[in-house]
C-alpha cells in the first residue's frame, strides 16, 4: 500500500464510523427530542453509505475487507432502529406500572 493510500484508507474508515455514530445519535434524538432530527440521521447515514462505496471503489484494501465494510454499512442502518424498538419493548412493562 502506498504511503498516501494508508492515510487515505484509514481516514475514510474513521470517518465512516464517526458518521455511523452521528446517525445513531441523531436517530435517538429524533425519537426523544425533536422529530426533525431524523433529517440529521438520514444525512449521516447517507455519508456512511457514500464512504462505504468510496472505500470500495477507491482504496487498495483487499476485496474481503471491502465487502466487510459495505456489509457493516448496511448493518449500521438497522442498529439504531432495532435497538430502539427493543429498548421500548423491554421497558414497556415498567412504563405501564408507573
Amino acid at each position: 500500500m502506498s504511503p498516501e493510500a494508508v492515510l487515505y484508507s484509514a481516514g475514510l474508515c474513521g470517518l465512516l464510523t464517526l458518521a455511523a455514530f452521528g446517525y445513531g445519535a441523531f436517530y435517538v434524538g429524533s425519537k426523544m427530542l425533536a422529530v426533525k432530527l431524523i433529517y440529521g440521521a438520514h444525512g449521516c447515514y447517507f455519508i456512511v453509505a457514500a464512504l462505504a462505496i468510496l472505500i470500495f471503489l477507491s482504496t487498495p484494501l483487499g476485496i474481503g475487507w471491502k465487502i466487510l465494510i459495505v456489509a457493516s454499512a448496511v448493518v449500521y442502518a438497522a442498529v439504531p432502529p432495532v435497538t430502539w424498538r427493543f429498548l421500548v419493548k423491554l421497558h414497556a412493562p415498567e412504563e405501564q406500572h408507573s
Partner: peptide, 16 residues
C-alpha cells in the same frame, strides 16, 4: 471490524 456495531447499540441505549 465488527466491534463498532454493538458499540453503536450501546450509544443508543445510553441516550435512551
Amino acid at each position: 471490524a465488527l466491534e463498532p456495531l454493538p458499540l453503536l447499540g450501546m450509544v443508543v441505549h445510553a441516550i435512551y
